[in-house]
Each structure stands twice: as structure tokens, then as C-alpha cells.
Design a protein around this nucleic acid. Sequence first.
DNA 1: CTGTATCCCAAGGGATACTG
DNA 2: CAGTATCCCTTGGGATACAG
Lengths: 127, 127
Amino acid sequence: MSERTAVEPVQACPIAPVVDLVFSRWTTPILWTLNEYGRQRFVELERRIGVITPKVLTQRLRQLERDGLVQRTYFPEVPPRVEYEITDLGRSLAPLFHSLAEWSPNLAKVEESRAHYDTHEPPHRRP
Amino acid sequence: MSERTAVEPVQACPIAPVVDLVFSRWTTPILWTLNEYGRQRFVELERRIGVITPKVLTQRLRQLERDGLVQRTYFPEVPPRVEYEITDLGRSLAPLFHSLAEWSPNLAKVEESRAHYDTHEPPHRRP
DNA sequence: CTGTATCCCAAGGGATACTG
DNA sequence: CAGTATCCCTTGGGATACAG
């Protein structure tokens, strides 16, 4: 047969797995809070994040625990106490978060672009 | 009244807006492909990304265009030609992607952690 | 080629209530 | 306090067909 594809399909970009791990829903605020405020209890996390429900917070914490980014410690007291802490592996994401934060000022340009896009005639688009 | 909250609620972590912008579904592979292979046509993007449907690709490209991360250029020919290119603003994300890629080797540790988690008795958990 | 238009569907998240 | 258990419901993505 002839050369079929001048363009070879690329399954996924190489950073996709990391993105899935670190930037799936709720993981960023959780990790950021744990990194910022240190070891804390379930209810503290819940309050700091503000809008998350306990069900979802539990789900995410379990996932992060399984992934080795968060350490869970149980104290058999009454009332029960559980503390969550970011691990060394989790902390190794700090430079990444730092990069994110450093890019933040560019959000202003994004806002500009959106405003321009929304107020001008679009380039050619189908009727 | 008394001091109510020793723990102040935090709406969201400061990097959340950037995360929403850059790491929403499909945006990473699209930006990465544009950054890696340069200016290209719709169908090239479609093939390189591999599994995305035209509907979703269009949606994402429009969003990225509005956000100022991607530039769309229309050529009134027959058949029609449209080329997409990453903008300077989009390219300014490259260091971020680089940080991601640098962290990738740690995925092995994540895998280890998962394997350990799945094969061992969990710490205290409700019956 | 470059998209649009529909229909559909599951998956995940919110709300709420409850337990050890 | 630290979760579980249900129910519900939106949202977004896949499949498909079609148009300029």
C-alpha cells in the first residue's frame, strides 16, 4: 500500500498522566491546603476548602492516600481523631504549584482576550 | 459574641483559576500538540490527538481561542483551510509543562504506593 | 476540509440524612 | 468527630449524521 499517514497519530501528550494525577477535581485545593496549613483534621480541611461535601472529601482523600500524596493517621480516642498530612512525595509537587502561582498574573491577559473576543466580530465562522 | 471560627474558611486555593484554565479536559493535549508540532490544520490536530471527536475539538479550540492561548487563521479557499497556532501567551505555559514533565519520574512512586495500598490491610476504617 | 446539529448516556458531584 | 449511605441530577463527552 501507499504511505497512508503523513501525520502519525499521537496517543496522548507525555504529561497527561501527571495532569490526571494532580489536577483531577478537588485534588489541587486539598493538596494546597495541606501544604499551606500543615497537618490537620478532617473537619479543618472541610472548613478551609469551604464548599466540599464530606462524601467527596473522603473520596478524594482516599485517592490521595492511595497515590501516596497524603498520609492519614488515626487516633483511637473518643471522639475519634484523624489527621491528614501531605507526604514528601506530595511536597515534591510544591515547585509545580509555584510555577502555577507564578503564571497567575497572566490571567489578566486571558481576561482581556475574553473581553475582546466577546465584544468583536468573530473571524470567519459558518452561518 | 465569641470568636467563632479558629479556622477561617478559605474559598479556594490561589492557583485554582490557572488550573481551571490550563488543565480542563483536552486542553493539555491540544496545547502540547500545538506547542510541539507548531501551526497545523484542524484535521492534523484531530489525527495527532487521536481519540477526540470533531465536536469536542471544536469546542475546546474555541475556548482556547477566546482565552487567547490559541490563534485561529481562516483561509478562504476551496476546500477551506484553517490553521491553528499557539500564541505567545500559550507558549508562556511551556515552563509549566516542563515542570510537569520533570515530575513524571515520580509516577513510579505513585504506582508503588498504589500497589502497597491495594495489597495491605488498611489502617482503621469504619466496618 | 472544517466544522454543526442531535441524540444519548454514564459518571461524578451535590444534598441530605444517618451511624460508630 | 469522622465519616457512610442514598438519591438525584446536571454536565460533558461519544456516536452519528450532515452541511458549506
